[in-house]
Design a protein around this nucleic acid. Sequence first.
RNA 1: GCCGAUGUAGCUCAGUUGGUCAGAGCAGCUGAUUUGUAAUCAGCUGGCCGGGGGUUCGAAUCCCUCCAUCGGCUCCA
Length: 646
Amino acid sequence: MIKITLPDKSVKEFPKGVTGLEIARSISEGLARNVLSIEVNGETWDLDRPIHHDARVKLNTWDDSEGKATMWHSSAHLMAAAIEELYPGTKFGIGPDIENGFYYDIDLGEKTISSKDFEQIEQKMLEIARRKEVFVRTEVPKEEALAFYQDKGDEYKVDLISDLEDGTISFYKSGKFTDLCKGPHLIDTGPIKAVKLLNTAGAYWRGDESRKQLTRVYGISFPKQKMLREYLEMLEEAKKRDHRKIGRELELFTFSARVGQGLPLWLPKGAELRENLEKFLKQLQRKAGYQPVITPHIGNRNLYEISGHYEKYGEDSFRPIKTPSEGEEFFLKPMNCPHHCEIFKSRQYSYRELPIRFAEFGTVYRYEQSGELHGLTRVRGFTQDDAHIFCRPDQVKEEFTAVIDIVLHIFRALDFMDYSVQISLRDPDDMSRYIGTEANWEKAEKAIIEATAEKGLKADIVTGEAAFYGPKLDFMVKDALGRKWQLGTIQVDYNLPERFELEYIGSDNQKHRPVMIHRAPFGSMERFVAVLIEHCGGNFPLWLIPDQAIILPISEKYEEYAKKVLHLLKNYEIRTLLDERNEKTGKKIRDAETRKIPYMLIVGEKEEAGGTISVRKHGEGDLGTYSIDEFAQMIHREIDRMISAR
RNA sequence: GCCGAUGUAGCUCAGUUGGUCAGAGCAGCUGAUUUGUAAUCAGCUGGCCGGGGGUUCGAAUCCCUCCAUCGGCUCCA
């Protein structure tokens, strides 16, 4: 007998060799019907794999992410099986489960596959699923596995197996389809009741641009048809929050092919929104001891040779601008730091003056590959809410944590609580990608890790994601469709101060090298606004929104009174519009609701007589009658509540 | 940049196999209406069917090419 410990700490005895399915059945028939995989001492196993030793186990159902993963991984095999039947000769790459569903990378040779073919594949998948094909695990020696795929002519699998360690290699077979796979899988294809292929994409073999591009087919599956329907509805809902759609509807920004792709044009409402954000941060920065600086949009080639940007990005970036007679070369600035370094160099600093904090909403231009551009989140010209802190080595941690505080303050003010934090370190196996010494990198990475821990932030540590001059702490947020974007970033840099030979005079009257902290709490205004739009669905916080209120006169008769109210509210610094159109009140309300204006102020006979306004709140409805003063106080209180740190 | 898809009025979309196919709703303009918490009525304007080239007696529709957009891949200072 062996002892099996369940998640609730209860211990049950089973005969040696008991399987997950048998454990589930011993608990209840219902669980046995719904269980998808089992975790044995933290490792996910097939339900029919015998357990020979005492173990902690957890039974995974659809409600566990591990259960979904098992389902989706098996669904990837199911899709591959369907594709192999429909398109004989297809070669298969990899087919994992992902956060929402699964994909399989396939090579169809001369054939192509597109969304038109999806239905046929889905039908075939369901047909196979209904047969309840059992997933059979077999283990074979490496040579045998290689021979199998060499025979089949599938060079991708051969490539995969060649990289595996010698020994036995596991295969899973269900029906006619056999696949190299370490598992685990469902018992059989039965639980897969609903499938939907979502899209296709080109994907380089092993993520390497220089290798062949395979066709990646994305799909998702569910144990119930209803769940699929709900998932598709959810996707539709998410599309409604897409910043590109809302940006157009609310007239925030646009693009023009004539101006150039990836170059956003901010419309008046969008510009006002952005200015409100900038004002907010400028105020915060002034309090935190930042000094504004302003630098030009281009810089001499020499500047970027010193910073290392030229070597790193010169060839892949915009071409230089040349002066006609002197033959000088200038680049559109890709970053503000080199300019700020030169500002620091413009005079001598004492250790007593540090830290020096230079802040600039600096617009930068980067060549992004055309296929990478995406609304406001990935553009070729954007404005960073940039600042560079030049400090003494002993001030790094304190300055770093102070920046974290600013980022978190902003996130709170915008009710932006669903973010993740990532520490990006260098790739120790490929130091050629970076500038600077080992010792400097170690110091910088240590500073970030310690400061982050001190602030109690739970950060994922990712190697190989650092900037070329230093490690980063990034704040990431998901968009409406679940894609992750980097917003705020804080970077510790020992390298650029060396390259620019930055110095300050220490208490010992000697020259010392400062440390630089690069930081941008929003990241870029463009990307931040994009994510903000999707976060609030265009219903911006009251303090930020361009138009806070709109006056809706019942008829032309009350226009004079409406103008008086408008004047009063403007004196209260409430951003107010007046709808003077010759329309019925219902229409004006509908339009104001569509424009997502927070407050609608209806004025007619009653209001004019009493010197009041009828207040309707966006998305909520009639709030009743207020005096102008009362309303103004209410607005200001609401705003204060939002922007004061909670 | 690569793979795949898409491109018809400002916006959202119809347009059958190439042959009155240049359409609708909203928006806009002009009038009428003087309006009380999500759409008042009527009339009108508006499109080189993304650009260019080709096939054809004839192209929004088929082919090539360029541009832009969308979904991924790669990249992201």
